[in-house]
Amino acid sequence: MGTKPISGSKSYLNLGLIENRNGGPETPRVITLVSSVIERTIQQNERSLKGSARKGLNTIFHGSRAPALSIRQYLERIYKYSNCSPSCFVVAYIYLDRFLHQMRDVHLTSLNAHRLLITSVMVAAKFMGEGCYNNAYFAKVGGVSTGEMNKLEMNFLFTTDFRLLVTRETFDRYCLRLEVEEAKVERWVELPIQLCGLAQGRTNREERNRASSIAGYTCRAL
């Protein structure tokens, strides 16, 4: 899909998109930054909705209560078990933004963010040909059932009109947005304290063996 990082790019290096899983930091910078953007958006949306008679539209992604894991913990879990590159999370972030632009009455909150994240990452991984585990595997990573994962994926794809292609220009623009976010995070710290084109996946046996090593978790937002 044409979004492989260029090794000489300072921007990609700053975001941790130049892969170095052996000997590098356990979690790339991009995970922290995407988490920060989403968490702040959730806080702003929930404050706005709390003080307004206007209520957001409930979707298949909504639960009755927020899961126990924070957004950052959840993304770190996905990164740990999905075998996706850091770039995949930028693409997932782009897909999530497209979804929310299509659903103007849907606001990102603690009740829907986790399901939207696991779905956007899975779709991005499939389109980019990364990992290519099946839906059952991603369901276990995300803490939902396989049946629910299937429904989430289909809803996400139809809502975004299967717009999965990400150009180099779009990818770079979102990387720049995340770098701006990085500057905000650093300032805060300084204060007083298309579902096609899939690569061939792993065998069912390999998927079962890897799935057996996943720490148990349930996305209890039911």
Rank of each mutant, 00 (worst) to 15 (best):
I38E: 04
H101L: 14
F138C: 02
A92I: 04
K140G: 04
L57A: 10
L157S: 10
R202H: 10
G2M: 11
R115S: 09
D105P: 00
E179F: 02
E186L: 14
N204Y: 07
G24M: 06
K50D: 10
T59G: 02
Y217P: 08
K4D: 15
R202M: 07
E148A: 03
R168E: 12
Q102T: 02
V30P: 01
Y79M: 05
P86N: 05
R77G: 02
L15C: 08
Y81A: 03
C196R: 09
Y95F: 15
E169A: 14
G216I: 07
W188E: 15
E46R: 05
L198N: 06
A215E: 14
S120F: 09
N209W: 03
S82A: 15
E206M: 01
K184N: 15
R104G: 03
N83V: 05
V185P: 03
L165Y: 07
K50A: 13
I38T: 02
V91H: 05
R98G: 03
F89E: 05
S145H: 01
K184L: 14
Q43K: 12
V91M: 07
H107T: 00
T3N: 12
P28C: 03
T203F: 00
H101C: 11
L152F: 15
L176T: 15
A66N: 12
V123L: 12
N150K: 12
L57Q: 12
S82Q: 06
G216K: 09
Q200W: 05
A124R: 04
R21L: 13
S82K: 08
S9D: 15
R168A: 09
K55M: 06
T159R: 02
R208I: 02
S213F: 06
P86G: 07
A183F: 09
L75G: 03
T32N: 08
V189Q: 11
A215I: 11
T27P: 00
S212Q: 10
F99K: 06
N14C: 12
G197H: 08
H107A: 04
V141W: 06
G143N: 04
D105Y: 01
I18T: 08
L195T: 09
